[in-house]
Design a protein around this nucleic acid. Structure first.
Lengths: 167, 167
DNA sequence: CTGGCTGCAAAGGTTTTGCAAAACA
DNA sequence: TGTTTTGCAAAACCTTTGCAGCCAG
């Protein structure tokens, strides 16, 4: 698993975001920086609703609309990556100062393992040549069963998170 | 691009589906076989709504619920593959007697190119060994810009298909 | 100031569900 | 005949949008 970002990393990404916003004529609102900070303070994968509730917990409440808006901006400027692990829901993770990687997903418990293999890039450059295609990114997932008895008993991880509203 | 399946292929997949339904205690309804036939008569990628309207066109009308139900069964028995090319929508394609392949997707016009590279399977078996994970499948997409002036001018391909209801 | 941004709630698009009627086994 | 499955419509789910008010520049 990834380790949480250091304070200096947080300052770096804020600077990058600041610069991105300025260059593209977007405003630097406190909400946007709070979301960015929250993403880089923690670690791992999250969805928009996770972020909505995380923000709620900080006491600095933002609306879902702002969460979505900010995540879009962060994806656009490359500080956050968007993934489609399962159907019909986007997952996100921080992307700065964190190695490029892909994911192995357990169909039973939803556990996510990260890996990196340089052969992907070999394939990418081959495709690029053969098909005259400018490739800007990729997504590679392997699906299956993790044989981890500890993790894979908590199948509840895959359930709907409707309990989140309860707080 | 793929070529439409032959009549004999259609008979084969029907037989496979029949057997799957029987084995798993599902009923063999005409709706299910009509959907399967429609999938194998044509070629390429489609979403649930495409299939709903295709069925409508055949005169043998089925409900959306049945389309979704049948697609789930077909994915489960391996005759159809489900993809997440873009956010919030599943795409499908037939999977029998059709080579294993992955996809390159144009962000501008939505064009999809298929490719196959054996290195994916090398990566897969490596992951399998390292992480003690039983991998049952994968999904690999490359995203970028196709440099095809003919295709890439029809950007309308990516628009919402709200016009479909008009017929 | 003033146009972009926010929060809220309502709408949007895709998928799932509930229920009575139909139909497979 | 007894359950699945169907069709229909309503609900659920995630995401986007509309709008009045707010605030960064």
């Amino acid at each position: 698993m990834a380790t949480p970002a250091l304070q200096e990393t947080i300052e770096e990404v804020k600077e990058i975001f600041r610069s991105y916003l300025k260059t593209n004529g977007h405003r630097q609102t406190p909400e946007r920086f709070m979301v960015l900070e929250e993403i880089y303070k923690a670690d791992g994968h999250f969805d928009a609703d996770d972020m909505f509730f995380k923000m709620k917990d900080t006491g600095y409440r933002v609306s879902r609309a702002t969460v979505y808006n900010t995540l879009d901006l962060l994806v656009e400027c490359g500080l956050v990556q968007r993934h489609q692990f399962r159907q019909n829901q986007s997952y996100y993770e921080r992307a700065y100062s964190y190695r490029q990687h892909d994911h192995v997903i357990c169909d039973d418990c939803g556990a996510i393992i990260e890996f990196c293999d340089p052969r992907i890039f070999e394939i990418q450059s081959m495709i690029q040549k053969i098909h005259d295609f400018d490739i800007s990114g990729h997504s590679l997932h392997f699906y299956g069963k993790c044989n981890d008895p500890q993790t894979c008993t908590r199948k509840s991880d895959l359930k709907r998170k409707s309990t989140k509203e309860q707080e």
